[in-house]
Design a protein around this nucleic acid. Structure first.
Lengths: 160, 160
DNA sequence: TTTATAATTTGAATTTAATTCTGTTTTTGA
DNA sequence: TCAAAAACAGAATTAAATTCAAATTATAAA
């Protein structure tokens, strides 16, 4: 009963993930040197990590300033959570490309949305065009980011 | 007076960024095919984008579940912002590896922190050991994420 | 507009890396 | 203990990255 969702990771897997999280374009030879394996063996492991969906994507962090994405905001949404109408709100919001995160949170507000846009006008525009279409939204509260000190998705990988 | 902070990006640069944001391990040949250039020319452009810090990092998105990072939380921090003591709070918090984001926000709360840990006990532990050390913190309010519907850093790249 | 200069691009040549594959070793479970 | 499966190494092959000289294109000064 082996299932590809079972994430059994040994020390070498964690080392590989650690290196690739830091630099997804590192060569197999460099990884091999670090972990003490042959490059071909490293390749096998990486492929397996991809198959098991431990590795979800190889991506590039781009400077938002370079793309004039000046505005970052968090929006708290209070919604009617009737039976079944639950996921409608989140799914619709998740579809908006400028929306980077949608979380269902504990507490008074139901949802937390992170959104990055060109400016406050474009944020308003998105809220008008998209949010008003979505039923069951009671109210929203928007928090504007003035300055970002740290922003990364890197996980803390325990090197056993 | 040319400055490497001047981010002048043409259509091809944006196309390249779009492709690399989706898959940082795409080959120059594949990019070249998409944008209608020679692979060597693509390489030059990519190197330039790295130099200009438009490209900040090539990274790997790893499934947090695979690493037992079960808890995601947002912490709102209210702090005394005296003259000069401003950055002390954020810099200290940004140093914590489990902290993924630190923002200075508009409104009543000063800072917004995103943090990912193994469980609520380890979150408490971090708050006890780190936050208590930091002066000027008036109060904190923690919001626990129950479920994440969407989570990505991808920017919306305008293909002119 | 002309022209010199710099920047960009190409394509071939070269270097480096990824991938495949076979034979071994190691692990796993009956 | 032993058979089957999985993981690994190392050589061979394939593919990609990188270099570089020459050509093209863009830029700016006269």
């Amino acid at each position: 009963m082996i299932n590809e969702n079972e994430f059994v990771l040994d020390k070498i897997d964690l080392q590989i993930l650690n290196l690739m999280q830091e630099n997804s374009r590192i060569s197999n030879a460099d990884i091999a040197r670090e972990v003490g394996m042959a490059p071909s063996g490293v390749l096998e492991r990486v492929k397996k990590l991809e198959q098991k969906k431990v590795i979800q994507q190889y991506t590039t962090r781009i400077n938002p300033v370079a793309l004039q994405q000046k505005l970052l905001a968090f929006i708290f949404i209070k919604a009617n959570v009737g039976p079944g109408c639950d996921n409608l709100v989140t799914d619709e919001i998740a579809k908006i490309p400028e929306v980077q995160e949608v979380h269902h949170v504990a507490g008074d507000d139901c949802y937390l949305v992170k959104i990055r846009t060109y400016d406050s006008a474009s944020l308003m525009n998105i809220m008008r065009t998209h949010f008003s279409q979505i039923p069951n939204i009671q109210s929203t509260r928007t928090t504007i980011v003035l300055e970002t000190v740290k922003e990364q998705q890197q996980l803390v990988i325990p090197i056993k």
